[in-house]
Amino acid sequence: MFTYEWKDSFLHRRNPIIKLSLIIIVTILISLSLFPALPLCTFLMTLLLGCIGGKIPIGIILKKMRVFLGIGIAFMVFMLIMKGMDGGGDTWHIWIFHWSSNDLVSILSLGMRIISISLMSLLFVVTTDPNDLVLSLILQMGLSPVHGYAALAAYRFLPTLQEEIENIKLAQEIRGIEWDKGVLRRLGTPLRIMLPLLCSAARRGERVAAAMESRGLGADIDRSYYKRTQIDRADWFFAGGTCLIYVALIGILIHAGMFRFSFGFNIK
């Protein structure tokens, strides 16, 4: 799990909405890429951006990425097995598994895709103050303040949630409901905490809503903002720059024969 870490860096100062939109654009682009070159470039560029623009040491980024690297690899292995059994082409084979080169390429780009998407998400979370995210959703995206602050209150509630889960588990154990018994029960664990957790969350929501309204949220007058987020020139440069880089990159890759659009169904 990763959380926002306060720092003063180029990346930290960027408007959350801009960051989010860029991530979405890039996600779409690399999802449409047949070959692994673009996801790989994205991965490397994001890494670089995190180090230089976000002032986060590369070691720390990679450490936080451990789990996701693992997941990406697990996913690739799984796809290898599934496709290998289908036996598309016969260029490569081990035991009962057969792959065509195309298979291997698309599996590799799938894995790279997952890894670079996770990396972007990670950078986003680490460099974005949730408060700013909500503010820019309200100010730049026209989200209503009630929704924005409701979401913020929910997010505020999360750290206590972990404690809450522990408390509920402990309370049930002490009162004689047993946990962690057998594989089946363990699988059901998320569901068993869910109901009490939802109840306490809803109760808390009720109280927060009362507190918010008793301080005037949602009254029919305009609202001012003490702190504001805005999209400034640097944000536009950042966005424009990123787009330019991608256009150029795709151009080069196409020229080098390493990029083709794929919509997920034109492989076979």
């Binding site: 505020r156 507190a211 301080r215 003490y226 702190k227």
Partner: peptide, 19 residues
Amino acid sequence: TQFCTFTVEDELAFGLENE
């Protein structure tokens, strides 16, 4: 259970912003 922001400053500003 009645706080809705993260810092003291934001919390105090919240009500005034609504006004």
